[in-house]
Write a protein that binds this DNA or RNA. Structure first.
Length: 536
DNA sequence: ACAATTGTAAACACCT
DNA sequence: GAGGTGTTTACAATTG
């Protein structure tokens, strides 16, 4: 049941580790994954039935004055043990599969965060949850206790996500700890994760650093982490807001990931069928939005945003660009996006994210993946007069990004430094003092410098627009399909988002220019699929 | 290897 | 003198 009939995990891994995947191999892998998903679903249904059965028996046992029906009980226990082993095997298999995909760049999964991509496959049940559920069922806890535990955690999430009016009381607090609000938030978690605490493993603690979104406080040991958690991340407005943001982010990402997976599969199937066709322009564009968004989905999770440059991502060796196919690699070069941090800190790199996660950046202390120059320009352009004093620029930064509510001396110095350094920022003497404006021409000059020396630049600037429109359309379509407010709904009522969207278009233009110049030496012999996987 | 870009830190001058 | 503003230099990291 568990052992794949088509191919073993080892074989699958071998195939996935190869640099080039043929369409046939890919098809096999896709079928493999489908089979895995199907098996997982079947397992879960089976597991649920078993769980219900066991709970029923536990109840019967209680009512019958604890007179266990030994043979039956034994049989069920044996069955469940076997099932548990199968489930674990399945999870391992899935993880191997996902790791392989990750290694190939098909999926970008943050190390240590394997739950995100697993969730859609497991239909919302992650391994730890399954195991926890298993423990609850098999432990001495009654079914009622387990149900009440589930209920409390459910209340927390549903209330937080659905709550449109943020308030401290929107969090359902564990009734057992109503006297101390500070502890009450963490108590349910601790109860459910007590076994993990003994091994000093906590979802919010790793590598000696607090993993609370945007925190990264160094905690020497687990005890100090717990102290830090209780003192710094107590139940207050800030934590509540961050929690809500996190939930929304996760929710969106799950939705996004599911849709993009479906899309990717359809695309793969489509491309496989028509892989012999030499040129298929729409595919690369879809490829960009889909793959990029998938990548973004896995990277945008605040928990996966280590700010300390300790663990660089596993290098995906960039392969020389082949045909004029837009790849995930080329999408890294999106204009003034801070590339050094996009790799180093695993921040979201898609410029769509800044609009998509506008609220996120406002509330979570995550570094925006844009350069100071871009942000300063954005601040100035958003102002009614297209000019701001230094202090107003500061205020924009702190208003728009929670990240810039810390270390003011550092980033303010950087802002001043950028204002002075870049010619595109012009200081204008005013009656009240001085204001800063943007010289758009100078600003636009900056980007082509990056690709100067490429003779095909001028030609490509023109051709880029033909690519850019469908690309934006593809992006928009993707966002719209995923119910993510971007250009469409959000920008209508929010001029900020509209401006950011404009900035994004410009950045995408720059990226397209760059991409086209890189891909100008396309070799016609290679199929789009081959090109795609060469670039992964 | 090199230049360009970017972020960070810091020194300094000027002004209020 | 303190603090804000603006300029400049230096250095490290990253990227093409």
């Amino acid at each position: 049941m568990m052992t794949p009939q088509v191919i073993t995990p080892q074989q699958m891994q071998q195939i996935l580790q190869q640099q080039v995947l043929t369409p046939q191999q890919l098809q096999v892998l896709l079928q493999q994954q489908q089979a895995l998903m199907l098996q997982q679903q079947q397992l879960q249904e089976f597991y649920k039935k078993q769980q219900e059965q066991l709970q029923l028996q536990l109840l019967q046992q209680q009512h019958a004055g604890k007179q266990p029906k030994e043979p039956q009980q034994q049989q069920v226990a044996t069955q469940q043990l076997a099932f548990q082993q199968q489930l674990l095997q399945m999870q391992q298999l899935q993880q191997q599969h996902l790791l392989s995909l990750q290694r190939q760049g098909l999926l970008t999964i943050q190390p240590g965060q394997p739950t995100l991509p697993l969730q859609p496959l497991a239909q919302g049940m992650i391994p730890t949850e399954l195991q926890q559920l298993w423990k609850e069922v098999t432990s001495s806890h009654t079914a009622e206790e387990a149900a009440s535990n589930n209920h409390s955690s459910l209340d927390l999430s549903t209330t937080c996500v659905s709550s449109s009016a943020p308030s401290k009381t929107s969090l359902i607090i564990n009734p057992h700890a109503s006297t101390n609000g500070q502890l009450s938030v963490h108590t349910p978690k601790r109860e459910s994760l007590s076994h993990e605490e003994h091994s000093h493993s906590h979802p919010l603690y790793g590598h000696g650093v607090c993993k609370w979104p945007g925190c990264e406080a160094v905690c020497e040991d687990f005890q100090s982490f717990l102290k830090h958690l209780n003192s710094e991340h107590a139940l207050d407005d800030r934590s509540t807001a961050q929690c809500r943001v996190q939930m929304q982010v996760v929710q969106q990402l799950e939705l996004q990931l599911a849709k993009d997976k479906e899309r990717l599969q359809a695309m793969m199937t489509h491309l496989h069928v028509k892989s012999t066709e030499p040129k298929a322009t729409p595919q690369p564009l879809n490829l960009v939005s889909s793959v990029t968004l998938s990548k973004t989905a896995s990277e945008a999770s605040p928990q996966s945003l280590p700010h300390t440059p300790t663990t660089p991502t596993a290098p995906i060796t960039p392969v020389t660009q082949g045909p004029s196919v837009i790849t995930t690699t080329s999408m890294h070069n999106v204009g003034p996006i801070r590339r050094r941090y996009s790799d180093k800190y695993n921040v979201p790199i898609s410029s769509a994210d800044i609009a998509q996660n506008q609220e996120f950046y406002k509330n979570a202390e995550v570094r925006p993946p844009f350069t100071y120059a871009s942000l300063i320009r954005q601040a100035i352009l958003e102002s009614p007069e297209k000019q701001l004093t230094l202090n107003e620029i500061y205020n924009w930064f702190t208003r728009m990004f929670a990240y810039f509510r810390r270390n003011a001396a550092t980033w303010k110095n950087a802002v001043r430094h950028n204002l002075s350094l870049h010619k595109c920022f012009v200081r204008v003497e005013n009656v009240k003092g001085a204001v800063w404006t943007v010289d758009e021409l100078e600003f636009q000059k900056r980007r082509p410098q990056k690709i100067s020396g490429n003779p095909s630049l001028i030609k490509n600037i023109q051709t880029s627009h033909t690519y850019c429109t469908p690309l934006n359309a593809a992006l928009q379509a993707s966002m719209a399909e995923n119910s993510i407010p971007l250009y469409t709904t959000a920008s209508m009522g929010n001029p900020t988002l509209g401006n950011l969207a404009n900035a994004m278009r410009e950045e995408l233009n720059g990226a397209m220019e760059h991409t086209n110049s890189n891909g100008s030496d396309s070799s016609p012999g290679r199929s789009p699929m081959q090109a795609m996987f060469r670039c992964l």
